[in-house]
């Protein structure tokens, strides 16, 4: 998948993963569709970026005698998801165009 495109998709996926209940690193990695190939080393910088942008909030809570960091979406984050979803019609239009041109050429 093209790098820029993947970045946008990943951001949307991670926001979606923390949009219901609050979630934590490993759970997010498991929840996001496997085709995204999300790993911790991708997730960590992404979470930092989203937190800094005010799209998610984080808190530490105890779990089995250790601290675990939990993330939750903010209103700004929900807005980003809405923006992402709003792009779908234009993406579809582009796919239809590419598909059509590809068929016609054969």
């Amino acid at each position: 998948m093209e790098a820029q495109m993947k970045r946008g998709f990943l951001e949307a996926c991670v926001l979606a993963a923390v949009s219901g209940e609050e979630s934590y690193g490993y759970q997010i990695v498991k929840d996001v569709p496997a085709s995204m190939g999300l790993t911790e080393s991708t997730l960590y910088p992404l979470l930092k970026r989203l937190e800094k942008a005010g799209c998610i909030t984080a808190r530490s809570a105890e779990h089995n005698g250790r601290l675990r960091r939990y993330y939750r979406i903010t209103d700004a984050g929900r807005e980003r998801i809405a923006e992402f979803l709003a792009e779908w019609p234009s993406v579809q239009e582009i796919y239809r165009y590419v598909e059509g041109a590809h068929h016609d050429a054969r």
Binding site: Q4, M5, G8, L50, K52, A53, E87, V91
Partner: peptide, 17 residues
């Protein structure tokens, strides 16, 4: 300023680039 750098609409970028 990381907050403004990351864009949700990144998937549109390769199409316009």
């Amino acid at each position: 300023d990381q907050g403004n750098k990351s864009r949700m609409g990144a998937e549109a970028a390769p199409l316009t680039a």
